[in-house]
Design a protein around this nucleic acid. Structure first.
Lengths: 224, 224
DNA sequence: GAAGTTCTTACGGAGTTCTGACGGATCCCG
DNA sequence: CGGGATCCGTCAGAACTCCGTAAGAACTTC
């Protein structure tokens, strides 16, 4: 498991980012200021740091500079619009990528994965396989036998989660939390996505053999 | 047997939660305030704590914090809707999962099992086995030999209870209380469900060998 | 054989899941 | 910028499953 340190003074940002990174399989630590971030990083050696540019006390640029004095840890910068000059400075200081606020958390998670891959922290290929079903997490590509499945982002995430937890029953609420990252919401969202996914991976969608309905509970993925 | 401590100031909640957790095979202790909970936990080392956020005296967050000072016991938080901020704080303090009130007791039991599994307290698959009958609580799946049994929720719960208490005779009233969680009700409900269950697990339903009728009393499960 | 108990069957309501459709949002390409 | 396609979440109605109840038949006990 890769350790990612997220540094931002905004609680909401921290929380959203944390959730998405965890969803992507990272272990996440949080800090709301530069001092704590540096202290934590010195002790725990994170695999990557997500760093807000604007911070109370020591600002992001300075944090980045100091991080680089002692390690080569990859850094992804969060910059607000109109901080162009700083962003350029950040890149020169060795930030490996940057994301502009307001940003989509999913995009951030993607960039983080991409940087980790480039840095060689994470293997280039991560596969989930069950029977003739094959899911390449890195390329975000799915195949059944030799046929490519055109799954949407959500469908891919959902199937990936199922493949990672075969034989375990989950409620819609749990799936909503684990896959969508929502704490509340319409559970029929799950129902419909399961249906769409079945449409694509089941031989007979009306009589599913892979994604089983657990009546009164939710769904369960059964290995072939 | 795993020991679970349930902390809630509402008697009804405690009672319902207790019943469902016992049904899932846990040993349950109750506390209605933080002080008692901490004292009990210090002495008895529970495997997991179900903790209400709103408590008289020491609140749930503080209880969680103190628990964590002395042990790594997993915590599942109960939060009311609209306590979003607290919930987030709870997770940061190390709650392993949370359930929002009003919650389905069945879902809570599922989450508890899930957390215990993640924590490694409990093996990945918890099975009740008798002869060729096999009942997987995690997957909520039942098989006989290699054939999957399509049990309904009630049937599953009923069979699980029987398998957990083989050779012991129960009155319909007791079953109604232990499995249904009812304090009163039509006892023929039990009769009919036993019949339906026999239909699915007995070789010759009319001459049952597993679920025996104890005339004038109720039923008893006999190991194969 | 009578009384009490259990078995069996059937039914309707409640709850759950499935299905198809719709409108908004986003992305892509011209 | 526009236009089109895709994807996503929501909804409402249909279809289905499950459950509790009732009522008569069959069985056990005395």
């Amino acid at each position: 498991m890769t350790k990612v340190l997220v540094v931002d003074d905004d609680l909401t940002v921290r929380d959203v980012v944390r959730r998405y990174l965890e969803l992507a399989g990272h272990e996440v630590a949080l800090a709301d200021n530069g001092e704590d971030a540096l202290a934590w990083a010195a002790e725990h050696k994170p695999d990557l740091v997500v760093l807000d540019l604007m911070l109370p006390g020591i600002d992001g640029l300075e944090v980045c500079r100091r991080l680089r004095q002692t390690s080569a840890v990859p850094v992804v910068m969060l910059t607000a619009l109109g901080e162009e000059e700083n962003r350029i400075a950040g890149l020169q200081l060795g930030a490996d990528d940057y994301v502009t606020k307001p940003f989509s958390p999913r995009e951030l998670a993607l960039r983080v994965s991409s940087v980790l891959r480039r840095a060689g922290t994470v293997p280039a290929f991560e596969e989930l396989v069950d029977g003739d079903l094959r899911l390449d997490a890195t390329a975000r590509r799915a195949t059944r036998g030799h046929v490519a499945l055109s799954l949407t982002t959500r469908e891919f995430d959902l199937l990936a989660f199922f493949l990672a937890h075969p034989g375990e029953a989950f409620t819609r609420e749990q799936l909503l939390e684990k896959v969508w990252g929502w704490d509340f919401g319409d559970q029929s969202t799950v129902t419909v996505h399961v249906r769409r996914l079945r449409e694509k991976i089941e031989t007979t969608p009306a009589k599913p053999t892979r994604i089983a309905t657990v009546w009164g509970v939710g769904y369960r993925y059964d290995r072939a």
